[in-house]
Design a protein around this nucleic acid. Structure first.
Lengths: 343, 343
DNA sequence: TACAATTACTTAAACGTTTAAGTGGAGTAA
DNA sequence: TTACTCCACTTAAACGTTTAAGTAATTGTA
């Protein structure tokens, strides 16, 4: 025999009050006056019977689920999440932590084909959706039609009416590239994942170009590499670059994990880092601290990214800035040095 | 003005049938006979009005939420998930994928203090809970009281009545250690995270001992290291081992990520791998493929682990084996060699 | 021809909350 | 004394489903 769930009715009976009173006590409603003795009776009954509210019922009447959907990029639809890049795992941790602080829970999901994620969101009456990273174009179009609040993390859909959190992507790429230029480098490569219109990668590409232009360095197509955000691509690329005739002396990589692969590939090809080639990464995940040599990189505050996302999503006050841009910091470690025979 | 949600009543009106009929059509109930023309009318109405079912209402009446809770270990309660170990990220991907295949969604959560996770589970009427890895002891005791199905992944609470998925942890550790012995090693170290009673680490420790005993090798306390499952610990340990007087010639590490750190630490101390020290890892995550040298390791099928977990959780047929043990495979790469001057 | 079975529905209660509106009674003001 | 305001509740509808039970028309069987 299935144990019946204890509900408000049971509490009401036990405390000798009506169900409404129980609801008022449990929700600590300020606009209702309840006698202290009654409150005590209800609270005792809750403890005695081990009452746990039924969120489904609450969701039904309030049309509010206390559920936040987080969409994480996947290597392929239906395949692995991009947790091989530690950045996403850390971000998810932060989102979950901050959501729970405010009484919300997190539903995860990968990129879906067509509008099925919105269907999930509606079915579940999600209170908000956080979209991390870049997804197919039509993904965003569908999103516009929903009345569920959306926050975009790390994508540039400036023409679309979404709240967003990002960092100074273009500026940070400029700073990273300038750091290499300041060390005397002029043959500077750019290594990234796929460059898409509304992605951070494109912004970082622009920042890279900015720095070169500022320093009057010619932009060379053969120094611009783009593949996937993975150690595998980085390694492959490292080996390729090592073989290249007019080799770059420094590489700006848009992710630590690519930089990590680059180091592997270059070292495998008997090049020394930073003596032969300087490398700068992006994100400052643990990978950066555990490369050999340790990675000079652009640090972003992942925890804050998650925190702000939840804040923005749950905040109804629309006076607030709807597009938060967080600061970054250049962390100098061992993978960048002055150019050989440099000034 | 907030757009009102389209519900079954609207569909019923549009299709000129009762709400019950709509429900029967939408749920494709085999035990109900509905005229083909009626089905068509209802389906057309659904499309026309863009009806999306309300899962909260469904959950309320059915006491079923189509929601599965996944508890992921955290570095500290309230801190980051252990996604720095890629194994957990991959596992979560698999769980989410397989859950969605069956119409369920995944709610993530970290380890919580006291019984609050169960409270969440009850509030949400979760249809199942998957607990990944090891959690504080009292965590499991609380879990027993619930009527929600629980599946444990990678923990050994044999005395507790939970379904579980694991691999042959003890056996695989024995195989790994034996592999080192077969290569002529006799000074074999064991490097792991914290060894807890019901954890995989303890089982692997036993397997390590099994192999040594089989080969009549004396067990030396100074060869048994345990810290945290992180590259940081591995690196620190590598440096420490390099300085040690009677250094081991091989190390069995219970996680690729520790092995990765070990390689870094040892190389930093000017030892060569595998020439000076052989290393074998565990899990076969991408880290194993991208160490330099590439890691010999024990491969486990992470996708299958997630798949079986969902299967076991959702399967009511209790005739089935309630403790699934998956196979592993030794993957030989570059980090293990015959002992120097060996036979 | 009578009645049983089948088909194709409909009716209405139930799930566990929230909340607007209602109800007495006590206290206060005129 | 009457009227009004608080206080401390209660009543009952509503949220959007599912489903057991009921019904009316049609078909099948003896």
């Amino acid at each position: 025999m299935q144990k019946r769930r204890i509900n408000m009715k049971d509490i009401a009976k036990e405390a000798n009050v009506s169900v409404a009173t129980v609801s008022y006590v449990i929700n600590k409603r300020k606009d209702q006056t309840i006698a202290a003795t009654t409150i005590k009776r209800v609270e005792d009954a809750v403890k005695k019977l081990g009452y746990v509210p039924n969120l489904a019922a609450k969701a039904l009447v309030a049309n509010k689920s206390y559920l936040i959907g987080v969409v994480i990029p996947q290597t392929e639809p239906g395949k692995e999440f991009m947790f091989s890049n530690p950045f996403y795992g850390e971000l998810l941790s932060s989102i979950e932590f901050n959501a729970r602080e405010k009484g919300y829970h997190v539903l995860i999901s990968g990129t879906n084909v067509d509008q099925s994620y919105l269907e999930i969101a509606n079915k579940r009456s999600l209170d908000g959706i956080i979209i991390v990273g870049i997804h197919p174009d039509n993904y965003y179009e569908n999103l516009i039609t929903t009345s569920i609040p959306v926050v975009l993390i790390d994508s540039y859909c400036n023409n679309l009416p979404f709240k967003s959190i990002s960092i100074k992507d273009r500026e940070s790429a400029r700073i990273a590239t300038k750091h290499l230029i300041d060390k005397g480098h002029r043959k500077i490569a750019f290594a990234s994942g796929v460059i898409t219109d509304n992605g951070v990668t494109y912004e970082r590409y622009l920042g890279y170009l900015d720095a070169l232009k500022e320093a009057n360095i010619e932009i060379k197509k053969q120094y611009i590499y783009s593949g996937t955000v993975s150690q595998d691509y980085g390694k492959e690329l490292g080996i390729k670059i090592a073989k290249q005739k007019d080799r770059p002396t420094a590489i700006f990589s848009t992710a630590d994990i690519i930089a990590f692969g680059l180091i592997n590939g270059l070292k495998k090809s008997n090049l020394n880092i930073p003596e032969d080639i300087s490398i700068i990464g992006f994100d400052d995940t643990w990978i950066a601290r555990d490369c050999d040599p340790q990675l000079t990189t652009i640090k972003q505050d992942v925890f804050k990214k998650g925190e702000k996302a939840i804040e923005l999503l749950l905040n109804e006050k629309s006076e607030e800035n709807q597009n938060i841009v967080l600061d970054i910091e250049l962390i100098e470690r061992e993978s960048v040095s002055k150019i050989k025979g440099g000034v």
